Computed example of a mutant assay.
Amino acid sequence: MKTTGNTIFLTGGTSGIGLELARRFRDLGNTVIISGRRKDLLDRIAAEDGIDGVQLDVADPASITAAYEAVTTKYPAVNVLITMAGIMQPEDLKNHDLALAEEIITINLLGTIRTVAAFTPHLLEQQDAVIMTVSSGLAFVPLVITPTYNATKAAIHSYTQSLRHQLPLQVIELVPPAVQTTLLNQENDPHAMPLAEYADETIQLLKDNPNAEEILVTRVHFLRNAEKENRYESVVAALNSVA
């Protein structure tokens, strides 16, 4: 992926990793459009950061279609899609909350698949086209209090591999570790990676590895490589003793 001169649409860009990366991409000379459910946040970011926004609820197929039409009409040169939107919630499997599990699946997994499906025909017509999905280190080692979240991220990892083999464009999987964001109230978690540090390393990896298939900051190797390095059981134990 080239890191400048793109037109990037990034879902879930009103906070956390999404907003931080949107700012970094903007500063590198890209046109960046973000999405979110709240118009007030989109308006504030547009005023403060100069980043255009489109309302989008990835749980709603009609909203995805409308966002696709709005983005490609106003920004026909859009050549990069980043599917950042997602939620993470703890679950008690002794007392299943199926509505919550289904919401996580709808937003994290179906939201990603539907957004990719909407934009793929357009992206296939663009030069330097990229689809960047967002999984997690928890796709590879589970945090047991967030079972459905882990499962959706494992599914995104697998889905991304199929995308990469089927589509004649670059497909990148962003694999974050725990980062200090509002996701699962980790803003001040000393075990989580500072947000600015995560964004710095991610952008540097993209610059250094333009043909990358996965973007893995150093902190996520502990999870990403646990199984192939025969550390899986000990890493599961370590991760969940901290949690």
Rank of each mutant, 00 (worst) to 15 (best):
T4I: 03
I8M: 01
L19W: 00
E20H: 13
A22Q: 05
F25I: 06
L28T: 10
I34L: 09
K39S: 06
R44M: 03
A47Q: 12
A47G: 09
D49P: 14
A62W: 12
A62V: 06
I64P: 07
V71S: 02
T72M: 08
T72G: 01
T73C: 06
K74D: 01
K74A: 04
A85C: 11
M88A: 02
Q89M: 08
P90T: 10
L93E: 01
A101K: 08
A101L: 07
A101P: 00
I105W: 15
I105F: 15
L109H: 10
T115N: 06
T115R: 12
D128I: 05
G137F: 10
A139F: 14
P142I: 11
V144N: 12
T146N: 13
P147L: 05
Y149S: 03
N150R: 10
A154K: 12
T160E: 00
T160R: 00
Q161C: 04
S162Y: 12
R164V: 09
P168A: 00
P168E: 01
L169C: 03
E173Y: 00
L174H: 00
V175W: 05
L195P: 06
E201V: 02
L205I: 11
L206V: 00
N209E: 09
A212W: 15
A212G: 08
A212F: 11
E213F: 08
L216Q: 05
F222M: 04
R224C: 02
A226S: 04
A226Q: 07
E227M: 14
Y232L: 08
E233L: 14
V236W: 11
S241G: 09
